[in-house]
Amino acid sequence: MEEKIFERKQANAVVISSRLYNLTIGAVLCWGFWVNWMMVSTIPVEPLQSISPLIFFIGYFASCLLGIYLFTRSDNALISFIGYNFVVIPFGLIINIAVSRYNPDLVVEAIKITGLVTGIMMVLGTLFPKFFAKISGALTISLLIVIGVELFQIFVLGIHQAWLDWAVVMIFCGYIGYDWGRANQIPKTLDNAVDSAAALYMDIINLFLRILRILGRK
């Protein structure tokens, strides 16, 4: 059985320099963000909104799960990158629908705040990797609880309380620090760089969507 990404202790490919490793993570992240930007810029939101929600979310989760399976199970950087794109594309559709509801200036502000927060959490993840490792279990439990409460409020009570968005922001801030800290503790190979970028991408996009919702509410 393959090792989980951040539990890998031995390199299954050529080890690269720390600089190239971090540059690869950055480049893969930028690719995902660029693809999302192109999707938002070129895909009209109306056809997406006309799709049955059930069909849309089945396709969304199927693509994400396939992508996650590919980049977590593969030791080949190219296959992992393909898996990464299977995650980026459905996230891009969600982003497209989300940003269409807000003023472009608000979206830009959310991007700036997300970038600033991400940078801070990466620095903290570098300085205090053991701290973030200790809270990883609490982050997972907290996220599951928040998702459960949110789904209950939406589908049963028909409400959505603002504190849930703040809770998700805090959780994904923790995940960014955690995933960045772990990314720099595993063998520095191209495949691990792609896998680490994929994990960070999902953290950052979830953080952005919640920040955008909080700003939009104000």
Rank of each mutant, 00 (worst) to 15 (best):
Phe81Asn: 00
Leu127Asp: 08
Val149Lys: 05
Leu157Gln: 02
Phe33Ile: 09
Leu20Asn: 15
Ser136Asn: 11
Phe152Cys: 06
Ile186Cys: 08
Phe56Ser: 11
Phe86Leu: 07
Lys188Trp: 06
Phe71Gly: 00
Asp179Phe: 13
Tyr178Pro: 05
Ala193Glu: 02
Ile95His: 14
Gly137Gln: 02
Val35Trp: 03
Gln10Phe: 01
Asn76His: 09
Ser41Glu: 15
Lys134Ser: 14
Ala198Gln: 07
Leu48Asp: 07
Val107Ser: 04
Pro129Gln: 09
Asn76Met: 12
Ala138His: 05
Trp34Ala: 15
Val123Tyr: 14
Asn85Gln: 04
Ala193Trp: 03
Ile95Gln: 15
Glu46Asp: 08
Leu106Asp: 04
Cys30Arg: 04
Gly181Ile: 03
Ala193Val: 04
Val156Asp: 00
Val123Gln: 07
Leu65Glu: 12
Ala27His: 09
Gly125Pro: 09
Ile154Tyr: 12
Leu207Asp: 15
Asp165Thr: 02
Ile135Ala: 04
Gly119Glu: 09
Glu150Phe: 04
Pro187Ser: 02
Ala110Ile: 01
Ser63Met: 06
Val28Pro: 02
Asp165Val: 00
Asp165Phe: 00
Asp165Ser: 09
Ile176Thr: 07
Cys64Glu: 14
Asn96Gln: 09
Trp180Phe: 14
Ile82Cys: 02
Leu143Lys: 14
Ala11Glu: 08
Lys188His: 13
Leu151Arg: 00
Leu209Arg: 15
Asn22His: 09
Leu212Tyr: 13
Pro187Thr: 02
Glu7Leu: 06
